[in-house]
Computed example of a mutant assay.
Amino acid sequence: MENFLFINFSFLAILGALGLISFKAPIHGALSMIVSLVAIAGLYLLLYAKTLFLIQIVVYAGAIMVLSVFVMMFFNIKSDSLWAKFSFIQIIQAALPLVVFGFLAYWLALMPGNFEVAPDGFGEIAPLGKYLFFNWGFSFEMISLLLTAALIGVVAILKGKNNG
């Protein structure tokens, strides 16, 4: 069952990444990226990294993608202004990292596979929550106030823009 889930999550992550770079409309690319981020969260869950799974869903697939879609809608980005024609040299330059990645993947496959097993309790959220609360609670609250002030500023700017 784990192999089935791993293959499907990996396939969805790759499809989402390909959709991100191949869709012409920016909103479709953002939705593809959400698919990719959720699939990566599923891979984290298969690794029993529950904290990374939650962070991936809440922070990346949730907050950051909502912010990205908000910015796309705010600036009214048109899909025809984004598409560019690529020259042969640019395609070669884009293919070079793929060759390097293939070389590194081949080199990694040659390494021995005797890795240590993660200790019990690895990936639990309770120790991370206690650490963040006791060491970074004040900073977190100050950032939340800063973001609230920024949101109020955006609303004020947009209200003034619509009245004039």
Rank of each mutant, 00 (worst) to 15 (best):
M1N: 13
N3M: 08
F4K: 15
F4V: 12
F6C: 13
F6M: 12
S10C: 06
L12I: 07
I14S: 11
G16K: 00
L18A: 13
I21S: 11
K24D: 09
S32M: 07
S36T: 11
G42Y: 00
L46I: 03
L47R: 08
L47N: 10
Y48D: 15
A49Y: 07
L52W: 04
L52C: 05
I55M: 07
Q56H: 03
Q56N: 05
Q56A: 09
V58Q: 02
V58K: 01
Y60F: 13
A61C: 08
A63C: 08
I64Y: 05
I64S: 06
S68Y: 06
F70C: 09
F74L: 14
N76S: 10
N76G: 07
K78A: 08
S79W: 07
K85W: 05
F86H: 14
S87C: 13
S87Y: 09
S87D: 13
F88Y: 15
A95E: 09
A95S: 12
A95D: 06
L98T: 05
L98K: 09
V99T: 09
G102F: 12
A105R: 04
W107C: 04
L108D: 13
M111P: 00
P112I: 03
G113V: 02
F115I: 10
E116C: 06
V117P: 03
G123D: 07
A126P: 03
K130P: 00
K130R: 04
Y131M: 13
L132H: 04
N135H: 15
W136V: 06
F138A: 12
F138N: 10
E141I: 12
I143D: 03
I143S: 03
S144H: 04
L147F: 02
N162S: 15
